[in-house]
Computed example of a mutant assay.
Amino acid sequence: MNSFLSGFSSSNTNVFDSCPSSSNFTQFVHDAQSFLLLLSHIEEISWSSIRLSSSSDGSILTLHHTYIDLGDRSHDLYIDIPQRWPNERPRCRTNLPVEFNIEIWCPKTSRLIEIITNFHSVVNSLQSFWTQLNELERDAIVLDEKPISYASTTRRLKINDNVHVQIQIDPYNPCAFPSITFHGPPMLVRSFDERLEQNRNHWNDAHSNIILNLEHILDITFPSNIFLKSKSQTKDDQQQECGICYESTIDMNETVIYCETTNCFKQYHEKCWKIWLRKKVPQRGGCDVLDIVVDERMNTTTASGPCLFCKKNIIVN
């Protein structure tokens, strides 16, 4: 058995990026019948379309398959074959916006090639979804950090220097009305929310272009990448950064506060703002910090102080 595995491994080194060693194969395969069954499955798939690797302890063998879709996008499927193969079902890992699992696995009749075929089918069914996202990136200024995963269903689009919108598209119905959330100074976001609520019934599912739909119901024109110049890009980057740490404020995991003074609307991370205020409290008279109160019982903080840019007061709860 060992000599057979050694010969198999060495004779196929040109096929694999990283082929498991014979010792790992021996550790993985508990009997010759299981091993030969696995070989027959791989033969059906074609050796040229997969790569093999194993976990460090040899307990899992992984088949890596790459599929290029009609949009020239590359999608990876990892099929983990457990030690109890074929009695234990394989596990799949992908980078798709929808869940991809093996629902039914019968050791005697199920084949690995069926998983590959199903993967191709799911990827092909998502072409309209990725096309919609490509159109967003083509027709608007996308603020998400690059590269963006094919699994992502959201895009953050710039509306103006102070407001951006997060759009979440349904992969199964990409032309339907998406989930829409505006981000920016509350007084500006409020007006966009009101327009959206008033006009959302004007959304046209038959119109495949999301940008045109949004421009129609919001009565706006999205700034376009086509006319984006390096100077304006620098200004945009500065507008979307914290006025204290100068890091981006686009990350949805962090709370952002805004100076609501017209023509300012400077952004700050809430944590940066409160840390800055606390550091300035001992010099209260000199830095114009108006108030900072910490209620330990309610675990809340109310803080106020001047915007570092326009000097107008900001209140944070």
Results as ranks from 00 to 15, higher is better:
residue 4 F to H: 12
residue 4 F to V: 13
residue 6 S to K: 08
residue 11 S to D: 10
residue 15 V to S: 05
residue 15 V to I: 14
residue 19 C to A: 11
residue 27 Q to T: 15
residue 29 V to Y: 05
residue 37 L to H: 07
residue 40 S to E: 13
residue 44 E to M: 06
residue 48 S to D: 08
residue 51 R to C: 01
residue 58 G to D: 05
residue 61 L to Y: 07
residue 68 I to D: 10
residue 70 L to R: 13
residue 70 L to S: 14
residue 77 L to D: 12
residue 81 I to P: 03
residue 83 Q to H: 13
residue 90 P to Y: 07
residue 96 L to E: 08
residue 104 I to M: 11
residue 105 W to D: 11
residue 113 I to K: 06
residue 121 S to K: 15
residue 125 S to P: 04
residue 126 L to T: 08
residue 132 Q to L: 03
residue 134 N to R: 13
residue 144 D to H: 10
residue 155 R to F: 01
residue 156 R to M: 03
residue 159 I to W: 02
residue 160 N to Q: 04
residue 162 N to H: 15
residue 163 V to P: 06
residue 176 A to W: 04
residue 179 S to A: 13
residue 182 F to S: 02
residue 182 F to Y: 03
residue 182 F to V: 06
residue 188 L to P: 06
residue 188 L to V: 10
residue 194 E to M: 08
residue 197 E to H: 04
residue 197 E to P: 01
residue 198 Q to F: 12
residue 201 N to M: 09
residue 210 I to Q: 00
residue 211 I to A: 00
residue 214 L to W: 01
residue 224 S to E: 09
residue 225 N to M: 02
residue 227 F to R: 04
residue 228 L to N: 06
residue 228 L to D: 08
residue 232 S to D: 13
residue 235 K to D: 06
residue 236 D to S: 10
residue 237 D to W: 00
residue 238 Q to G: 02
residue 241 E to K: 12
residue 245 C to P: 09
residue 246 Y to W: 14
residue 247 E to M: 14
residue 249 T to L: 09
residue 250 I to K: 04
residue 258 Y to N: 09
residue 258 Y to K: 01
residue 271 K to G: 00
residue 278 R to V: 14
residue 285 G to I: 12
residue 287 C to A: 07
residue 291 D to G: 12
residue 291 D to I: 06
residue 293 V to K: 11
residue 295 D to K: 11
residue 295 D to V: 12
residue 297 R to F: 14
residue 297 R to I: 15
residue 307 C to M: 09
residue 309 F to L: 15
residue 312 K to I: 00
residue 317 N to C: 03
residue 317 N to Q: 11
